[in-house]
């Protein structure tokens, strides 16, 4: 079975603020890590490979330093990796990102199953997986909470819904996004890390894509435009209380009593 896992590098912290006076972004840390949700996708891919054979590829898109997470995936057991990187992809929204990924996947190979994490911790949209599936013209199942089994040319999975669980039989090729906690992700192995430290990865830029039209990528290929960014505001009626623990607990208690939350 040919398995592809799509992963993303995200900022380590969420400490980004806007200066209210200038409207300017302040980012305190440049540190980055693999999107935590992708660890579950990677683990799912590794288990499928271990049980049913085949090979596991990882793909990411981002700045050159995003290659670091491909090596992290190698240390967990991935076989080969590719990085999609080009300044022309900067400013991509969900659609342009999905399009770039689908083009990169076309370049990277043919896969039976593509596995994505549920969402990222920086974008939090959970939309790229299903958009990629549409662009590749393959079926997609999101929120997969368990994999039942793989048979000759299909996979049987449990999809979580609001109140129900749907069991689906999905033919290959297909794309799934997996929930957190589907499996416990393994730790990277030091031995594998040493063995794969110099492994070659593929790098794709706009010139490697099937569609080389610049207008379909980056900001130009993004239907959504960020008009402005601003700090969140609040127009609530507010009171600020300070004092000793005794005073404050008494005030909260009196307020709760008045609002009839307690006797």
């Amino acid at each position: 079975m040919k398995i592809l896992v799509c992963i993303k590098q995200v900022p380590s912290t969420n400490k980004v603020e806007v200066d209210p006076a200038t409207g300017i972004l302040k980012r305190n840390s440049a540190e980055a890590k693999m999107n935590p949700y992708d660890l579950f996708a990677l683990e799912t891919g590794l288990r499928l490979r271990e049980k049913y054979g085949g090979n596991l590829s990882v793909l990411t898109m981002g700045p050159p330093q995003a290659a670091a997470i491909l090596y992290e995936a190698f240390a967990m057991g991935a076989d080969r990796g590719a990085l999609i990187t080009d300044r022309k992809f900067g400013g991509s929204d969900v659609l342009a990102t999905s399009y770039t990924l689908s083009q990169g996947i076309g370049k990277f190979g043919r896969f039976d199953i593509i596995i994505c994490g549920l969402q990222t911790t920086d974008g939090d949209t959970a939309q790229v997986g299903p958009e990629v599936s549409e662009m590749l013209g393959i079926p997609c199942v999101c929120n997969v909470r368990a994999i039942d089994k793989v048979e000759s040319n299909h996979i049987i999975v449990d999809m979580e819904m609001s109140e129900d669980i749907e069991k689906l039989k999905v033919p290959f090729p297909c794309l799934i996004t997996v929930q957190k906690d589907i499996y416990e992700p393994r730790l990277p192995s030091y031995k594998k890390q040493k063995a794969t430290a110099n492994r070659e990865i593929s790098r794709y830029s706009l010139n490697d894509m099937g569609d080389k039209n610049e207008k379909h990528y980056g900001l130009d290929g993004s239907p959504t435009n960020v008009q402005r960014i601003f700090p969140p505001s609040s127009d609530k009626v507010q009171e600020k209380w300070t004092g000793s623990g005794e005073d404050l607990s008494e005030r909260i208690y009196e307020a709760l009593k008045k609002m009839k939350f307690t006797a």
Binding site: V10, P11, N14, K15, V16, E17, V18, L25, R27, T121, D122, G123, D124, P223, T224, N225, V226, Q227, R228, I229, F230, P231, P232
Partner: peptide
Amino acid sequence: PAFGGNIMAEILTP
């Protein structure tokens, strides 16, 4: 909310 932090973004699809 955008950029995974304490920021709101106003977005159009013009």
